[in-house]
Amino acid sequence: MSTVQQEVDERTNLTASNKFELLLFRLGGDSNGNQNELYGINVFKIREIVAMPPVTPIAESAPYMMGVVNLRGEILPVIDLPGLIGCTPKTGLNILLVTEFARTTQCFAVEAVDEIVRLDWNQVRPSAGSYADNTITSIARLDNDVHGTRLVQVLDVETIVQKFVPSKETPPSGNDMAIKLTSGSVILAADDSVIARSIIQKGLEDMGLPYVMTKNGKEAWEKLQELAADAEKENKPLREKVALVLTDLEMPEMDGFTLTRHIKTSNRYNSLPVLIHSSLSGSANEAHVKSAGANAYVAKFSPPELAAKIREIL
């Protein structure tokens, strides 16, 4: 019990200091197996790591969907991650990463697991948006700013999973769901995932809510300061410029925990409601959200729940 509590405390301390843990793994290289680069996924999303079990192919499955596995009575889909990314494993698909996030559980087949590293989100930079068909969300520098630092490509697993299991839920529509904000006020949103931004934008548009979309906490924080300065120049309350901050948790440069704490510990901004919208689910993560001072939490991806929570807060 003490060990479990220690792990919870350590994770809480990480989220309180703009840090996180990244599992590093390898997918293979080019057609000759060369250039075996490092890839990463947040440890919070890993349920377990197992040696590759027998996989049962499923008829008429999507490309790169290997089939399903039976793990202790649970039938889980298996995605060929090297094939999806365009890598060729030199030694084969040896490891299964069992992941749990965004209300889904699935397995990623990889060639090898390397190590777990602890990083500051300042060591992570947004990708240019063109890597591997938007499956890479950011680039992490393992050795900070030193010359020749090792680089890790952080996968946008939310976008990857949505390709195989797209959300079938749609937000309520119609005049009964429309929310009228003060003229000139917007929803300030932050998310580094391509698919998440598209779902958020669609939901806000369906609700008739104007918004400003940013790609990480740092962008959102800078935009918030800009909007606050505009409000002061116009001698208006900040809430007439920003009605709500909607933020993801995992983001390069500044995560959602840090963004939330910046807002809630500032006399200038603490009146703003903050809604966390994250693929990191579970009671431990919800406890972390509360400790940061957010007003509410919604797990990805459920447009009806997100719309209902926004409506409740506003």
Rank of each mutant, 00 (worst) to 15 (best):
E10F: 06
R11D: 11
N18Y: 07
F25A: 11
L27T: 12
L27A: 13
G28K: 10
G29T: 12
G33A: 11
G33W: 03
N34Y: 03
Q35R: 15
E37T: 10
L38I: 14
N42R: 12
V43M: 13
F44K: 08
I46N: 12
T56P: 03
M65V: 12
L71V: 09
G73R: 12
E74H: 12
I79S: 04
P82S: 07
L84K: 05
G92S: 04
L96H: 02
L97V: 07
V98I: 15
T99R: 01
T99S: 11
F101T: 00
T105I: 08
A109D: 01
V110I: 09
D114G: 01
I116S: 03
W121G: 05
Q123N: 14
V124P: 01
R125M: 07
P126R: 13
A128T: 05
G129A: 03
S130Q: 09
T137W: 00
A140C: 08
A140I: 03
A140D: 00
N144S: 14
V146N: 05
G148M: 06
L151S: 10
V152S: 00
L155M: 06
L155W: 01
V157T: 09
T159M: 02
K163T: 07
F164W: 02
S185N: 04
V186L: 07
V186K: 13
L188F: 05
S193K: 03
S193C: 00
I195A: 14
S198R: 07
Q201R: 14
L204K: 08
D206S: 15
M207F: 06
M207Q: 06
Y211T: 10
W221A: 13
K223L: 10
K223C: 13
K223A: 13
Q225I: 11
E226L: 02
E226D: 11
A229S: 15
E232Y: 09
E232V: 14
K233V: 11
N235M: 10
E240A: 15
T247G: 06
D248H: 04
D248M: 01
E250Y: 05
E253P: 01
G256I: 14
G256P: 15
L259H: 11
K264W: 09
S266Y: 03
Y269Q: 08
N270L: 07
S271M: 03
P273F: 00
L275W: 02
L275F: 02
I276L: 03
H277E: 00
S278D: 00
S281G: 15
N285I: 07
N285R: 03
E286V: 11
V289K: 13
K290G: 09
S291I: 05
A292M: 05
G293F: 10
A296E: 02
A299C: 12
K300I: 06
S302Q: 04
S302E: 04
P304K: 03
A307E: 01
R311S: 14
L314Y: 08
